[in-house]
Design a protein around this nucleic acid. Structure first.
Lengths: 335, 335
DNA sequence: CTGAAAGCGCTAACAT
DNA sequence: ATGTTAGCGCTTTCAG
């Protein structure tokens, strides 16, 4: 840096100012510095910057699993968005382990990262409620009453309502729900939306049609639920799954039992992952607005890192339903 | 660190030695230092370590896309394996862009990372052959004659041979191949394995059954290929797809045209991603040994970083075929 | 708006 | 096997 300063005929401080994009450097000086940087092939040593400034330029994105297309998708967007803001993103798969999620919130990676985005899986609403959070953090996922940090939430309830209303409008009345849990969080919200829609239509809620699935991660959860539903003998003409992964498991079982989708049973998922376009049949699914979620989460975090104070902000992402063949949508042209 | 040294009654150097796990510290001293560290809640400042030692403790894993379950899966394993070795892994989606892949090989991230693992998509075999590589790098993917760096390769050819031999053994003789390209690389190898198997069985190779698909990333590539195949009128009783993603697209089209799998057409994929277990029907697929690939790649890279010299090493991962219903395997018990 | 000097916290080299 | 010292390359004071 000293060499660059000499070449540009300025002090090191000015070089530093230019490279850090600090304001208050004359345009002409800036240009001269940049020329010298280029000429000498100089590059900032990030380790030294970090040591001196205390800022790492790194943010962590903690998510349950990367092999889930939904999270892969969000992760890719978060990485891109982070880069736009000048941050490197480190992905931290928590394996849905409580201890790892806690570590993120308690600043376990302090000194290593400037902040973190957490998509909790093990931590339920009750755990999160009013919890103490160390350092800049943005939460993804379920809505909380007393959020301990900024969050970007899906409108789980509203989105579910939309999905179920769509099935009702198609004349289905025996609609099963796959993915209920006792954990609170998204599952409860999605169940609430399901109940809202039925109630609004004057359709009674039949407990026999509520199928638990503690592990949303696996298609096998959906498959297992479908088997239980079929074996219970309860009549049904539609299945609303709390995510796409489980919906694929359900589709698989229905096909293996000789049931036609959507003729005999309509199926709707949640996430609108890319593969929903190519399942057999293509899956109707709620798009929870991943693009917006990633963008907003990084924005909120970066503003926190850069000094924003005040109460946690909550941003609700926009959602919409993508109707495909599994719920009677038009046969999509393949290709 | 000075405080810890005082508390433990040793010099800072000793504290540093203990924390860096350098050899040559008496066990008793070590214990005393660790106690002091705990008591004071002391944590190494990684920025300072990096500045002084020049090592970052970070490795980059550059891959085309994270939303592809195959890469999400490998990425997760690489992250875990890196952690085991004390390294943080930074994922760098290249978007299959030539410039980004080149940047990895030419040490674009020097000073930021100690080394990189690259899974090339845009760079073909010819580009890679004998290319100059800057810094420790491990390549994933296709086998090269004159590798510029260590690599972990699949036995593309052998694995394809196994897959096609399986179809032949099941009595199929009109076997289409989906995913050929003119790029060289994995596509060529897989095509060669396909030809090997046919030739060995005395079955002629019909060019009408070779279906190009430049973009392996998308199920739509497989779907488009299947449409072309059907519209060509060429008879066929099996499809070997060069990856699972394309196979799902093919399954989708076959179903929409009323063809039964495996009765009318057997289908085999390549990657054995998790969703192959839950497609309709479950997909027979070649498992290319992702676990071993991730483990080996990190091992090779870390050993390079830690000073290994000499000619590039090449490790061929083990593969095996997982037979499921799409090629006439037994109906898998659902759940 | 720019310059000079100090020092972030650690580890490498050398000494003991 | 452990201690001493210097300095990695930058940014932050504080002056001008």
């Amino acid at each position: 840096m000293a060499d660059v300063a000499v070449a540009a005929g300025v002090s090191v401080k000015t070089v530093s100012n230019v490279l850090a994009e600090h304001p208050g450097v004359r345009e002409e000086t800036r240009a001269r510095v940049l020329t010298a940087v280029d000429a000498l092939g100089y590059r900032l040593n990030p380790a030294a910057s970090r040591l001196r400034s205390g800022r790492t330029g790194v943010i962590a994105f903690a998510l349950p699993h990367l092999y889930q297309p939904y999270f892969g998708d969000v992760a890719e967007r978060v990485i891109a968005e982070g880069e736009r803001h000048g941050y490197t993103v480190v992905i931290e798969p928590t394996d849905a382990l409580l201890a790892r999620e806690r570590a993120v919130l308690s600043g376990g990676r302090a000194q290593q990262v400037d902040g973190a985005i957490l998509s909790p899986a093990a931590l339920g609403v009750i755990d999160l409620q009013g919890l103490h959070v160390e350092g800049p953090v943005v939460l993804l996922g379920a809505r909380l009453d007393d959020p301990p940090a900024d969050q970007v939430v899906m409108d789980d309830r509203g989105a579910s309502r939309t999905a179920v209303a769509h099935l009702l409008a198609a004349g289905r009345t025996r609609i099963a729900a796959v993915g209920t849990t006792q954990d609170g969080g998204s599952a409860d919200e999605r169940e609430a939306g399901y109940r809202d829609a039925l109630t609004a239509a004057g359709v009674p809620v039949d407990p026999a049609l509520l199928l638990d699935a503690p592990d949303w991660d696996r298609r096998s959860s959906g498959a297992a639920a479908a088997v239980r539903l079929l074996d219970s003998g309860a009549p049904f003409d539609a299945v609303f799954c709390f995510n796409d992964a489980m919906a694929f498991g359900v589709l698989r079982v229905l096909a293996s039992r000789g049931l036609r989708v959507p003729e005999d049973v309509a199926v709707v998922g949640f996430d609108n992952t890319e593969q929903s376009r190519f399942s057999t049949p293509p899956l109707t699914s709620v798009d929870p607005g991943q693009e917006q979620i990633a963008r907003t989460a990084v924005d909120l975090l970066v503003r926190r890192i850069e000094g924003r104070t005040g109460a946690p902000e909550v941003v609700v992402a926009d959602h919409h339903l993508v109707v495909r063949e599994s719920s009677g949508g038009p046969r999509t042209p393949v290709v």
